[in-house]
Lab assay of single mutants.
Amino acid sequence: DETGKELVLVLYDYQEKSPREVTIKKGDILTLLNSTNKDWWKIEVNDRQGFVPAAYLKKLD
């Protein structure tokens, strides 16, 4: 059920640097789980959840 889920576009590649982070690729469109922290957003990638720098993402309307 995708209702109410926010999507984000990945602006730059990011390689995870800790187990709490996930790797993302430029151009991916992913589900945003939590954006309350202005610097690190929690997203879902391939059934994995983790954090990436918010500056690497853009919210889609």
Rank of each mutant, 00 (worst) to 15 (best):
2 E>S: 14
2 E>V: 14
3 T>H: 15
4 G>P: 12
4 G>R: 15
4 G>K: 14
5 K>H: 14
5 K>I: 11
5 K>M: 11
6 E>K: 13
7 L>D: 04
8 V>L: 04
10 V>F: 01
10 V>C: 10
11 L>I: 09
11 L>E: 04
11 L>G: 01
12 Y>L: 11
12 Y>A: 14
13 D>H: 05
13 D>T: 06
13 D>L: 02
14 Y>S: 01
14 Y>R: 05
15 Q>F: 15
15 Q>A: 14
15 Q>E: 15
16 E>G: 13
16 E>Y: 05
16 E>R: 09
17 K>Y: 04
17 K>E: 08
17 K>W: 03
18 S>M: 07
19 P>C: 07
19 P>H: 10
20 R>Y: 15
20 R>D: 12
20 R>P: 06
20 R>L: 14
20 R>Q: 13
21 E>T: 06
22 V>Q: 03
22 V>M: 08
23 T>M: 03
23 T>G: 05
23 T>K: 04
23 T>A: 04
23 T>E: 03
23 T>W: 03
24 I>W: 01
25 K>I: 08
25 K>D: 03
25 K>A: 09
25 K>T: 11
26 K>V: 07
27 G>S: 04
27 G>W: 06
27 G>L: 02
28 D>R: 05
28 D>W: 14
29 I>D: 00
29 I>S: 02
29 I>L: 07
30 L>R: 10
30 L>M: 05
31 T>N: 09
31 T>A: 11
32 L>P: 00
33 L>E: 02
33 L>R: 04
36 T>P: 03
36 T>E: 12
38 K>M: 09
38 K>N: 11
40 W>Y: 08
40 W>L: 04
41 W>G: 00
41 W>K: 00
41 W>I: 02
42 K>P: 01
42 K>M: 14
42 K>N: 06
43 I>S: 00
44 E>M: 09
44 E>P: 00
44 E>N: 06
44 E>D: 07
45 V>M: 09
46 N>H: 13
47 D>G: 15
47 D>Y: 08
48 R>W: 08
48 R>P: 00
48 R>N: 05
49 Q>I: 15
49 Q>H: 09
50 G>P: 02
50 G>M: 06
51 F>S: 03
52 V>D: 01
52 V>W: 00
53 P>I: 02
55 A>C: 10
56 Y>N: 11
56 Y>L: 10
56 Y>V: 13
57 L>H: 00
58 K>H: 13
59 K>G: 04
59 K>E: 05
60 L>E: 04
60 L>T: 06
60 L>K: 04
60 L>P: 03
